[in-house]
Amino acid sequence: MFFFKLFLLSFIPSTLSHDGFNSHLLPRPLIMQYPERIETRFEKSNEELELECTSWRFAVETNNLSPWKTIPEQCGSYVKDYVMGRGYKVDLERVSTEAGIYATSLQLSADGKDVWVFDVDETLLSNLPYYADHGYGLEIFNPVEFDKWVYRGVAPAIEPSLKLYEKVLNLGFKVFLLTGRSEKQRSITTENLTKAGFRSWDKLILRDSEDHDKPATVFKSEKRSKMVEEGYRILGNSGDQWSDLSGSFPSDRSFKLPNPMYYIP
């Protein structure tokens, strides 16, 4: 051991003891300096990816994201599994149940002016068959292709929404359908809704030619304004987009249905 210590001491350069010590003349400690961003060759684990996509969907539903055109590419399988699986159905049922509890708790006036407003697409009618052929939101929205789907008139009912729809009708609400669909699609929309089980609505409000360039929030706010001017009280509103529910003249209470496939401002 004594010999080993002497060996180490003799190995240290004599410049260490000099007052004019220059560290650049000696081997310096090896310090690994990482770049601020490190590209990894390893894909994220399934668990981590699911957490990120769940967080993204939460931000969508709480309206915390800026306007977006498509779902994140890495979340394609996640969104598909969600909307085609049990989770989406359970979420839809929860919204319908809570809305029904609220509707039942209200004492309606005798003048017939109490209104429940429903959006149509992804609120009453499901376009999942269309989005199944278009990446569940991975593709940029194509209005021409979507109109072709609309004119087929085969969109199925969202069952929990149909139950809520029938409940509010039986309670005595006036039912107004307020949709971003074009006035040109009135006939096929009426046919599709009726075929899917929706009947006895009081008004079906669509976009006229002067409304086509308006953002959905503006268009629907203006239509709700007109309802109020006519003396109606908007007690409930159901929609899958925040633009269905926000803006001026909102309902007393609104119910947001889940939709991670697309965003309408």
Rank of each mutant, 00 (worst) to 15 (best):
R86Q: 12
G85W: 03
R41L: 15
L49F: 04
D81I: 01
G100A: 02
I71P: 06
A103C: 06
A99P: 01
S109D: 08
V83C: 08
E48Y: 08
V60M: 08
T62K: 14
R86F: 03
C75A: 04
V95H: 01
E48W: 10
R94M: 14
E93I: 03
E43W: 09
L92G: 05
Q107P: 01
K89Q: 13
K44D: 11
E43V: 15
R94F: 09
L108W: 00
P67H: 14
T54I: 04
L106I: 01
N63A: 14
W56D: 05
W56T: 07
Y82W: 13
R94D: 14
L65A: 07
S105N: 01
Y102V: 00
R94G: 02
C53R: 03
V90Y: 11
D91H: 08
S45H: 03
K44W: 12
L49Q: 15
E73H: 15
K80H: 09
L106D: 00
E52K: 13
Y82I: 09
L92P: 10
G87D: 08
Y102K: 00
R86I: 07
T104Q: 12
L108I: 01
D81N: 08
A110R: 03
K80L: 06
G76H: 05
T97S: 09
S105A: 02
R41N: 15
L92A: 10
Y88H: 07
Y82Q: 11
V60A: 09
Q107Y: 00
E48Q: 06
V83M: 05
R57Q: 09
S55N: 14
E93A: 15
T62M: 12
R86L: 06
F58T: 12
N64Q: 15
N64V: 05
L108G: 00
N64S: 15
K44E: 13
D81S: 11
N64D: 10
K69T: 12
I71V: 15
E98A: 04
A99K: 01
T97E: 15
E52A: 13
A99D: 00
V95Y: 03
R41H: 14
V60W: 12
S77R: 14
D91Q: 07
V83A: 09
V95A: 03
L106R: 00
Q74A: 12
L92E: 14
A99R: 02
L65E: 06
S66G: 11
E47F: 07
N63L: 09
E93M: 10
K69G: 09
R57C: 13
S77Q: 13
L49E: 11
E47A: 09
L106M: 11
S105K: 01
D81A: 10
A103K: 00
L65V: 05
V83T: 05
T97Q: 08
L106W: 00
G76D: 04
S109W: 02
F58P: 02
W68P: 04
E48I: 10
Y102M: 01
D91A: 15
D91G: 07
L51V: 12
Y82K: 06
Y78Q: 05
E48G: 02
S77T: 12
L51R: 12
A110L: 06
T70Q: 13
W68V: 02
S45T: 15
